[in-house]
Design a protein around this nucleic acid. Sequence first.
RNA 1: GGCUGAGUGGCAGAGUGGUCAUGCAGCGGAUUGCAAAUCCGUCUACGCCGGUUCGAUUCCGACCUCAGCCUCCA
Length: 454
Amino acid sequence: MKIFNSLTGKKETFKPKIKREVSIYICGLTPYDDVHIGHARTFINFDVIVKFLRFLGFKVKYVRNITDVDDKIINRAKEEGIPALDFSKKFIKEMHNDFFSLGIDSPDVEPKVSDHIKEIISMIQSLEEKGYAYRKNESDVYFDIQKFKDYGKLANRTLDQLSAAERTIKDLNKKHQADFVLWKMDTDGITWPSPWGEGRPGWHIECSAMSIKYLGEEFDIHGGGLDLKFPHHENEIAQAECATERNFASLWMHTGPLRIEDKKMSKSLKNFITVKDILKDFHPEVLRLFFLLTHYRSPISYSKEGLENAKRVLDKFYTLFSDIKTPRKFNEDKTFREEFISAFQDDFNSPKALSLLQAYAANTESGGDLSSDKLFTLKVLLNSLGLLLDEAENYFKYGELELSDREIEKLISDRNDARGNKKFDLADKIRDQLLKKGIVLEDLDGKTIWKKKS
RNA sequence: GGCUGAGUGGCAGAGUGGUCAUGCAGCGGAUUGCAAAUCCGUCUACGCCGGUUCGAUUCCGACCUCAGCCUCCA
């Protein structure tokens, strides 16, 4: 197995610290708004990665945090006039619903900042004792990046480059303008007592503290969206390695950015699309496949056409399996399985692995040997990626419709009567009528089924 | 300005020093009352300029273009 390591910039052979076990920490989200498709991309990608590692037989400990203490939450909660933690709880619930809809497995541990203040304070104290933390007068507590010789190793940046950044706002309490807050002095919003006074953790420290608590001072994989690489992950490394004097995560993984119709999606541009919006029109597996059709590190440009293309691909797979009964007895086709694994093992090359499955599905069809071991293997492999887990019928009927099932069945029955009497004009009229309501009819041998129009 | 990455056929998207990516879409045909699905056949490619090589989309160099990060962001 090879994985691209953002820290070294190279594809490396993956060697977990403990044989056949993987410890992985992924930066989760800050719950102050609905889950958007950028989140979906990152967490679906890591979901597939974890599923695949388990499929290969690794014992995975997967930790994904929730940053529930944060400026954005506090501000939004204030606007709504409710306590910050109540506000974030509401969006945590939404997040869980959306992730469930998307078929994303729950992590083994999902720690929240508000439950780990003790660990965070203790890490800051440790940094203070070792001389990496400072404050001037009664200011916030800062991390002193100049004391950490490796600062910038992840993002490949020198201290000079950082201080030369144009947009840096000068803060007179800081020794270096890229120093960042460990403990923010605050009496407003949500706060806790600390050795430095009332306040709350700065952004970054929570991930260092929580990953170490659940995975140990050194663990295998740390990941997140590419936009977190700097400064968030750089700062996590600084805090953790200075506090523990050890190496922290050995491998860093970053998912590529998602753009909307060729424009950057960002909070400041307010052009984000929510998962709930997508799921109104598209089955969750369509979104999953849309992402997997591109390598996890490449940028993706979201577009409706892209989703429709993914849907056509998924339709083919579902069609293949809706026509035939999956055999009860089967043996896996080892060659096919190995080919798939070998493609996917190479830095989780999902597009390549999927292309094998697509080509394979075509061969399976033309070969005519539909209830073979091969076909079953195809399903096992698709399932391993979180695809083809629904019933074909549900899949094809997914979405909102004007007509009820009963109304549709009545019209189908009327049409079949007309067909029986060779009144094809009437039959076609009914077909058109249903089509206008978004329903497509298909006459299989002796039976008519319906699907939602794409 | 600094750092990083990318430029492949109508679209998405792998890969490779020399015979096919793959899929979707399109086109022609078979099949179907009409459709759908399926089957058969079929077209279009590697940003630009040099270099290395018997041969480069693949290696090297310059150039152009685009994106991400350097500000909240997954």
